[in-house]
């Protein structure tokens, strides 16, 4: 019997797992942004000394895992599961990185929502009594994503104002059954929502309905009010998506504007010419594991709703004229169990 399920899409944990440690590594551009002081490692060269950007992303993935493990004084052999995901076809970054680790691995694809998806599944595994330590890692890289989804780097094209900049970075969280917080107390798993948006250069508009749906469902399922949260933060709605999301929620008589932030907006300064903002599986991962967890630990925010959003498109679906399905997963991170 699903005794831990509340409402239609939410799980409330009996013994909430703790995020005991985190690791982040970002590229040079992210290292010049407003959150630069919160990352563990900033690359000066986004090839990371490797022959291809795909190899560089893989190395970032591995190093963010290692950074997180080191901070928790754990070895990889202490880990029950590695849960990883990225944006590349067949999630090669995660799988190739996991070759080195020799640890049971789950590979996930949820586009830019993967960090929240991974935290959800890891928390369920731990609270279910299937694991004591789990590492959740996601990554993305501007130059690998760009060639897969858009144009070659040296092609002279104009990026529309609705477009987002894929974050070069990887973030890892170590979750444990035994810790002193911050705790993951609730997760709301999103549905795939598609309202017919087709513009691959406007992912904010494609993802906003999914984000609104998950946020509304979360409050319905848990009975929480906005006052129960100090911060509601989405993964990569960016500026265009944020405006749409706020309007969609206002239509449902919910105003979260005062408590709302978005990782894709926070990570870059407006002067960095990223148009709408950041995106990518690494975007929410590095903002969560870098900046946000430190804010929670220092008590600036005691309870946070973290919603990572994903645009589930592929180059094939775009070329075939399909609309873009969106998804959003919500995770409650709290100092109180």
């Amino acid at each position: 019997m699903a005794i831990k399920k509340i409402g239609s899409q939410t799980v409330k944990f009996a013994n909430p797992p703790s995020i005991i440690s985190s690791g982040t590594i970002v590229g040079p551009k992210e290292g010049q942004g407003p959150l630069k002081d919160y990352f563990d490692m900033i690359l000066t060269d986004d090839t990371y000394g490797e022959k291809s950007w795909e190899k560089a992303e893989c190395k970032m993935f591995q190093d963010s895992v290692n950074l997180a493990l080191k901070k928790a004084s754990l070895n990889i052999s202490d880990i029950d599961y590695l849960i990883g995901g990225d944006l590349l076809n067949q999630i090669i970054t995660s799988s190739f990185a996991a070759r080195q680790f020799n640890v049971p691995t789950f590979g996930l694809y949820g586009a830019c929502s993967t960090m929240a998806e991974g935290l959800s599944i890891a928390s369920m595994l731990i609270d279910g009594g299937f694991a004591d330590y789990i590492v959740v890692t996601t990554s993305s890289h501007f130059s690998t994503a760009e060639r897969q989804y858009r144009f070659p780097l040296e092609q002279g094209v104009q990026r529309p104002f609705t477009s987002q900049w894929t974050v070069t970075g990887s973030g890892s969280s170590v979750l444990s059954s035994n810790g002193t917080g911050p705790y993951i107390t609730h997760v709301t798993t999103g549905k795939v929502v598609d309202l017919g948006m087709k513009d691959a250069n406007n992912m904010g508009a494609a993802m906003a309905p999914a984000a609104a749906d998950t946020i509304l469902t979360h409050f319905n399922d848990t009975g929480f009010t906005i006052d129960d949260y100090d911060l509601i933060i989405t993964g990569d709605m960016a500026r265009v998506g944020k405006s749409i999301l706020m309007e969609l929620l206002r239509k449902e008589y919910m105003n979260i504007e005062d408590k709302y932030k978005d990782c894709g907006i926070e990570i870059y300064d407006e002067s960095q010419d990223v148009h709408s903002g950041g995106s990518g599986a690494g975007c929410s991962a590095v903002v969560l594991n870098g900046w946000l967890l430190q804010q929670i630990k220092s008590g600036i925010y005691n309870r946070v709703l973290f919603i990572a959003t994903g645009a589930l498109l592929s180059p094939t679906s775009t070329q075939q004229g399909e609309s873009i399905p969106g998804i959003a997963h919500a995770v409650t991170i709290s100092n109180y169990a």
């Binding site: 104009q158 529309p160 104002f161 609705t162 309202l195 017919g196 948006m197 406007n202 508009a205 906003a208 309905p209 265009v240 405006s243 749409i244 309007e247 969609l248 709408s276």
Partner: peptide, 17 residues
């Protein structure tokens, strides 16, 4: 109808070139 309604909202916030 829902898609059309949403398209109108999304278009409102789309920064024009």
């Amino acid at each position: 109808k829902k898609q059309q309604e949403y398209k109108d909202i999304a278009q409102k916030y789309e920064p024009k070139p």
